[in-house]
Design a protein around this nucleic acid. Sequence first.
DNA 1: GCTTCCATGTAATAGGTTACATGATTTG
DNA 2: CAAATCATGTAACCTATTACATGGAAGC
Lengths: 196, 196
Amino acid sequence: MGRGRVPLDAKALCLGVLNQRSATGYEIKKHCEEGPFGQFFVAGFGSIYPALGALERAGLVSVELQPQERRPDRKVYSLTPRGRLALIDALGELPGGDRIRSEFLFILYFGDLLSARQIDALIEARLAALIARYEEFRGCDEQMLAPGEKFVKGYGEAVIKAQIDYLEANRHVLIGEALRAGDSGPAAPTSHRASS
Amino acid sequence: MGRGRVPLDAKALCLGVLNQRSATGYEIKKHCEEGPFGQFFVAGFGSIYPALGALERAGLVSVELQPQERRPDRKVYSLTPRGRLALIDALGELPGGDRIRSEFLFILYFGDLLSARQIDALIEARLAALIARYEEFRGCDEQMLAPGEKFVKGYGEAVIKAQIDYLEANRHVLIGEALRAGDSGPAAPTSHRASS
DNA sequence: GCTTCCATGTAATAGGTTACATGATTTG
DNA sequence: CAAATCATGTAACCTATTACATGGAAGC
């Protein structure tokens, strides 16, 4: 009956957060959303609540019910000893490679079909988003963070910075080539929607 | 009613590849796997074949059957005009933010529970993998690539480089802190596995 | 008055991963 | 002799996203 095998998913996310402090499902989601790490550790209520239920049935977390008036009772979850072991097990597994799903890169990769103006707007928006995230990272108080968290913060910062630098240095190259190729027009310059 | 709405998923991936050249499902998968872009555009047969079937039913691709002996017939798919429009539509959508699922960062983020040695091994393995990928990117002949592909290649290269640099510059900081904190031991130094 | 915050959850849906099923041919 | 390449596909499974359902309190 060796502790349930825990893959690195919503369940592991809950275990990780609960290892830092006991919390409700709502608070776990909040914790993931706020701060710069919201981009790394994503999970909606639809995955967190079922995950907590499963963890409880597996004996990896315990619940304390805090009745509230005019509001659903708070269910404060805590890591059990077995839960801590399961987390250590999960963290001990060799990590798989990162999975990146970037619609931005997808679009550019197949972007022969787009006009230079579309590409430019795309990159402009992307840069704005990256810079906003970068500021968010920088503004995050390091004093509050555990060593691992600080490390990850620096990691994210470095990766975002690299993207900003690359985009600023190379956007004009891409736009230039799109203009040259696009004069003959790869496709109507973005106007269709009529349909059958 | 207007051509089937195409989200940026396995179907769009097929459309994108088929826009470059006609191909079988097998070849599409091959194309995604080989070269440095295999990391960006992942799809198994289990998603490609159904996607192609759906695209065909929607009239976005056409099929030419090439009978073969002692082997399933090749089904060579080509983009139809409507398929090209659907692709343009899909590419025209504003991209969502990147989704990153990094088990590596997850482990480090919650890594208080790991020993310094485990963390060191983790980073060592990661560095090796990153360097291997970096070489793969560098070794890729740019002459062969369309402008968008070149751009994405450079993008990936820059991001990988940033990760390598960050890890090499900061791994010792993290290990040092883990050693200092870990002497009192956050948990048994990795030995369990018994149990039925 | 509208939105956001608090606080829980279920159900439907969509999507991908893995395993299965088949089988000759080439390469190590 | 085993493994990888070519070549297709289906089915079960697992997970996440989304929408739905409920509802008071506080801030703008």
